[in-house]
Design a protein around this nucleic acid. Structure first.
Ligand code: SF4
Ligand code: SF4
Lengths: 165, 165
DNA sequence: CAATTTTCGGACAAATTTATCATAAACCGT
DNA sequence: ACGGTTTATGATAAATTTGTCCGAAAATTG
């Protein structure tokens, strides 16, 4: 939800890369395949996404042995928004909840006010939060990137639904 | 985003219906086609959605002349959540931003905390806001349902993006 | 230079979502 | 009972997203 699968994978990969950079400052490139396997992302799909990210100059890539991908800038300078913008063509956050077509100030929908607050928050996060912020408390666990927070997850299920015969 | 097209249409239609009920208490049924045309929703698609909504007993329908659809309960008793649950099979709000597979309290992702707050807010809205709340300030304008708020819209565009060659 | 490794790029396949169509079934007034 | 109107339903098509494959290009190593 909110982000496409592609965007999710992109963020995961960038995060993985950022953390790995931090812990292995000596090595330059990490291979796409390694990330895909560690995070259980379909390799070929991730490879495609990586291409987009390099095209947008968020990653640099090198072919051949010892090649791979690396962050093009420091983690402090890469925001979630940058990643989303590179991967997802569709414009998130502009189109809204109930999708009224003409979303001008003259004809806002009844949900407008509440939703605008949420949109603003979401945008605030993706606009300001950088990879550096995110990897701060994160750590590898069995090769997988994970954070040591312990807040408990919402996991709202909406009931069984799916009464599609 | 967040909701599927189908869910958006469902909410729009229910809203339209609720407002219409209010302004035309004498008439029982409104036709699906009329709503589709007023809100510019593909008729056949909306018809499908309406079927789901009646199956979940949010709408009652009547065939034949003077037939159509009507809210099955009063607008106060229909929450956005009910509509979403009827239309969207997938569970929103549980899966999250960057889609880490195992979202347990032991291995939450680095974005967890911020995102949980947002998820909670979204859930709070769809769980508590009813059609009655939404139609309060809404009104028809050229047959179209619209609200008289004037807050200005965020409309975050994320730059051109779409550099998909 | 040849072999190997890795990204790149286009094409393709599967799955899902969105949209359309045709026909059946129900209802109503006459 | 009949004809017209309107929803219900199942089949299908288009579009989008997701996932896969393969050959080419580039770089490294020997
Ligand atoms: S008026 Fe606001 S809440 Fe309504 S559709 Fe537009 S942006 Fe979304
Ligand atoms: S830990 Fe929280 S933010 Fe991260 S994927 Fe899970 S629910 Fe989403």
């Amino acid at each position: 939800m909110i982000f496409s699968r592609a965007a999710e994978y992109a963020i995961q990969a960038m995060l993985y890369l950022a953390k790995w950079h931090e812990t292995h400052p000596e090595e330059r490139y990490l291979q796409t395949r390694e990330i895909a396997e560690a995070q259980e992302i379909p390799y070929y799909f991730l490879a495609k996404i990586v291409q987009d990210l390099t095209r947008f100059e968020l990653l640099t890539s090198a072919k051949g042995p010892q090649g791979g991908i690396a962050l093009a800038r420091s983690p402090e300078e890469i925001r979630i928004l940058d990643i989303i913008a590179a991967v997802d063509s569709t414009q998130y956050l502009s189109r809204c909840v109930i999708g009224y077509p003409e979303c001008t100030p003259e004809t806002p929908c009844p949900l407008h006010y509440d939703w605008q607050k949420i949109k603003t928050q979401i945008f605030h996060i993706i606009e300001h939060v950088t990879l550096a912020d995110l990897i701060k408390d994160a750590q590898f666990q069995n090769g997988r990137l994970v954070a040591p927070l312990t807040f408990g997850v919402v996991s709202v299920e909406l009931g069984e639904s799916s009464g599609k015969s």
